[in-house]
C-alpha cells in the first residue's frame, strides 16, 4: 500500500497529465459524432456575448454587400408577389393563410461562422427566449445553411452544411430523384450529392433543391447547381458535385424555419413510440 502511494506521489505530474488528456480526448471523440457534441459549445453566456460584441463592431465593414444581398432578395420576393393573381384574394383567405401556416419563419443574424475546418459550426442570435428549438432548419436568402443543434437562452449553435457529420435530403429540381447531401471537408463552395440512382437524368447545370422527405427544411429550397458528376459503375449510383448558390463564407442575415407539423408527422412515422 505504502509503495503504491509513494509511486503515485512520485509520478503525480504524469498522472495529472493522463487524467486531463483523457478528458480532452473524450471531448474530441464525442465531438466527432453528430448530436453528441454539446458539452463544449459556444452557445453559452460568455462566448456568445464576446463574439456578439465583436460581430457588432465588424458588421459595419460588410454593410454594403449585405444590403445588396437583402435588396436582391426583396426584388425576387416582389417579383413573386406581383405575379400572384390578386383577384381571388379576399381578406379572409389572406387571414387563413396567416393563421394556417405550415412553416414558422424567424429572422436571425450570424455572430460567428467557421468554414475552414472539417466540422464547422455557426453561432446565431436568438435562443430559447425567442422560441428557437433544436433541429430547426436555418436558411439564407440564397440557400440552406444548416440545422440548429444546441440552444442556450440567447444563442443557438448551428451545425453547418460544411460539416462532415451532416447529411441532408436533396433532390433534382426537374425530376425529383433524391439523394443525400454531404461534405468532404475541402472546398466551402462544393458539396457532394450521393445515392442518386442511375435512372436519374443528371446534367451539368441542373438545379438541386431540398427534398420533401426532410421534416426540417421545406421542399424546394434551392441549394446549388451540378458542377460535375460521375457514375459509380459498381453500385449504380451517381456521385454529383454541387456548387452552392450560397456563399458560406459571407453569411449575415439568416432565417430559422420551424415546421409546425413536425411532431405530428414524426408521430405518424414512428407509431410504436409513446
Amino acid at each position: 500500500m505504502q509503495q503504491i502511494i509513494l509511486f503515485l506521489i512520485k509520478n503525480k505530474t504524469g498522472l495529472v497529465f493522463i487524467i486531463l488528456m483523457t478528458i480532452a480526448l473524450g471531448l474530441t471523440f464525442k465531438a466527432h459524432t453528430y448530436h453528441n457534441s454539446k458539452v463544449v459549445s459556444s452557445a453559452n453566456f460568455v462566448t456568445g456575448n464576446v463574439l456578439e460584441t465583436s460581430e457588432g463592431i465588424s458588421q459595419y465593414f460588410g454593410l454594403k454587400t449585405q444590403n445588396e444581398i437583402l435588396a436582391e432578395e426583396n426584388e425576387a420576393l416582389r417579383k413573386k408577389l406581383l405575379n400572384l393573381s390578386p383577384s381571388e384574394d379576399t381578406l379572409e383567405s389572406q387571414l387563413d393563410f396567416i393563421t394556417d401556416t405550415l412553416y414558422r419563419i424567424q429572422k436571425s443574424t450570424v455572430i460567428s461562422n467557421y468554414y475552414d475546418k472539417i466540422d464547422n459550426f455557426l453561432l446565431i442570435k436568438g435562443g430559447v427566449k425567442d422560441s428557437i428549438k433544436e433541429d430547426l432548419g436555418v436558411i439564407s436568402s440564397k440557400g440552406i445553411v444548416g440545422i440548429i443543434e444546441d440552444v442556450s437562452k440567447e444563442f443557438s449553435r448551428v451545425i453547418s452544411i460544411l460539416n462532415t457529420n451532416t447529411s441532408i435530403n436533396a433532390q433534382l429540381k426537374k425530376t425529383n430523384h433524391f439523394g443525400t447531401l454531404t461534405w468532404d471537408g475541402k472546398d466551402p463552395n462544393i458539396l457532394s450529392l450521393v445515392d442518386v440512382p442511375r435512372s436519374a437524368p443528371v446534367k451539368v447545370g441542373d438545379t438541386i433543391t431540398t427534398g420533401g422527405r426532410s421534416l426540417i427544411f421545406p421542399e424546394n429550397v434551392p441549394i446549388g447547381i451540378i458542377s460535375e458528376y460521375e457514375l459509380d459503375e459498381n453500385v449504380g449510383y451517381y456521385n454529383i458535385s454541387v456548387k452552392l448558390f450560397n456563399d458560406m463564407t459571407n453569411l449575415k442575415h439568416v432565417y430559422v424555419i420551424e415546421n409546425t407539423r413536425k411532431e405530428e408527422a414524426y408521430k405518424l412515422l414512428n407509431p410504436e413510440q409513446p
Partner: peptide
C-alpha cells in the same frame, strides 16, 4: 468553447 471544436 469559442471554436466549437470538442477537445482538440
Amino acid at each position: 468553447f469559442f471554436e466549437d471544436s470538442g477537445g482538440i
